[in-house]
Nucleic acid binder design. Structure first.
Lengths: 191, 191
DNA sequence: ATACATTGTAAGTACTTACTTGCATTTAGT
DNA sequence: ACTAAATGCAAGTAAGTACTTACAATGTAT
């Protein structure tokens, strides 16, 4: 817990904006949650919007994706796709608050929208590239790699949303069930 | 344009809350957009929350789904799934504002969350039932019908979100391209 | 034409909220 | 120990916002 004052404020703001929305998250409440005085906020960030801009800067996290995945690929369709699901879901879970916040406040903050869009976009690009190579190596049938990637990404994101209860199926799926059923179907279709 | 005063207010409120969020949509602005005086709002709905509650009532639209689909089924997997995509996308488009509004304001209004969840949920139930029957008739391979349905629904909802630019792939897909590529892949996997 | 319900107008109240200012207190580097 | 920067505290300002009240204007049905 050696957080700087600025970080304490940013984290408190993210949580509160996630709960109450941007307008609902008062500077007073943010200060209280961060355990600082309200004035301290304005001394650091100038105005309320400044907090969010700093938060967006801090969480421009997309680069995380690319490095993590590439190393773990073993060119076995089943192992790879299951790994890609697990890693992606873990990342989404970890950044859940920011992602759902972005989903809600993207009208107010254009940058948030950009950030939000990049999450599946980057994922799709990586997966597209993966499928291209798997087709070259003749490990899967010849489908359009980009089509495969979007389907795969949509299924993944849909599952994430259903977990967060933003959406829902009629049952609740654990990630293992999801992989064993939904992803397994996808894998089978490729072979 | 023979809208009642109440309807004018409700529609204006929905649009504004969609744009600015619930707290950002002031009663003054709603009145202005609806071309009524601000007091008229309070005379009809009591308070600001009352507008949204009336709007939610008005848009409890889930029942629409079930009737529309059942009649159009011809028990040909390709024709049926393409029809189901088109109908569902059309419905989502039509209710887009309310859906995206619900996505943002579901924390503030529990009922909105319920409504939002029911959209894919009902769809999944219908599709599950459809797949069950198609398996009985031996028109598709024996997969778990619920798994198929969730995958199909997630792909559909993902496409909807990417169209609304909430999410995005790296390219923009038209609905015809989406059907010809993404759905075609899904159909092929079933046969 | 009269009666009644609906809407508009004007003005105001009570409350919240982002943001400021001046000064006291604490923390940290040398 | 001394200095300077960071933070806390108390009080206040200005603007916005939901909601109210009293009354005038308009429409509508009989």
């Amino acid at each position: 817990m050696h957080m700087s004052t600025e970080d304490k404020i940013i984290e408190a703001a993210i949580e509160l904006v996630y709960e109450k929305g941007y307008k609902g998250a008062t500077t007073r409440a943010i200060a209280q949650k961060a355990n600082v005085n309200e004035v301290t906020i304005f001394r650091h960030f100038g105005n309320k919007k400044g907090i969010m801009e700093a938060a967006i800067q801090k969480y421009a996290f997309v680069d995380l994706l690319e490095n993590t995945f590439a190393e773990k690929i073993v060119w076995d369709i089943e192992k790879d796709l299951k790994m890609l699901v697990r890693e992606y879901q873990a990342l989404l879970d970890q950044k859940k608050t920011v992602i759902l916040l972005a989903l809600r406040e993207s009208n107010e903050f254009a940058e948030l929208n950009e950030m939000l869009k990049k999450v599946p976009q980057t994922y799709i690009e990586i997966i597209t590239h993966y499928f291209e190579q798997m087709i070259e190596r003749e490990k899967i049938k010849k489908f359009d790699p980009y089509t495969l990637a979007t389907n795969f990404a949509f299924i993944n994101f849909g599952f994430f949303l259903s977990k967060t209860r933003v959406l829902s199926g009629s049952e609740e799926l654990s990630i293992e069930e999801f992989i064993d059923k939904n992803i397994a179907f996808f894998i089978q279709a490729l072979q």
